[in-house]
């Protein structure tokens, strides 16, 4: 995945995070993860997971938590 593409994913993930932030640190990560699972295609999800793996530069804290959750969700599947 190109740099431009992963920058874009980070931007998009943070945008999603900002909407769900109002639900609080308790529930927001799960809601964000669920949104990513429902609307992002597998390649984008793999891309954002890889980005987190590589340090996750630029990701907001809630979104980092959400991507962790996403990893668990995908592992279960």
């Amino acid at each position: 995945m190109s740099e431009r593409s992963s920058d874009k994913l980070v931007h998009m993930a943070n945008q999603i995070g900002k909407f769900f932030a109002s639900q609080g640190a308790e529930t927001a990560p799960a809601a964000i993860a669920e949104h990513l699972r429902k609307f992002w295609d597998p390649r984008m999800r793999v891309g954002i997971l890889a980005h987190l793996e590589a340090g996750g530069a630029g990701l907001d804290p809630l979104v980092r938590d959400a991507i962790e959750k996403l990893r668990e969700m995908m592992a279960v599947r």
Binding site: M1, S2, R4, S5, K8, K38, F39, D41, P42, R43
Partner: peptide
């Protein structure tokens, strides 16, 4: 059972060569 690409994502994926 997995969602596919949306138009902007298709274009990004094309630029990425996949």
């Amino acid at each position: 059972s997995e969602p596919g690409l949306r138009i902007p994502n298709m274009l990004d994926a094309a630029v990425d060569g996949v």
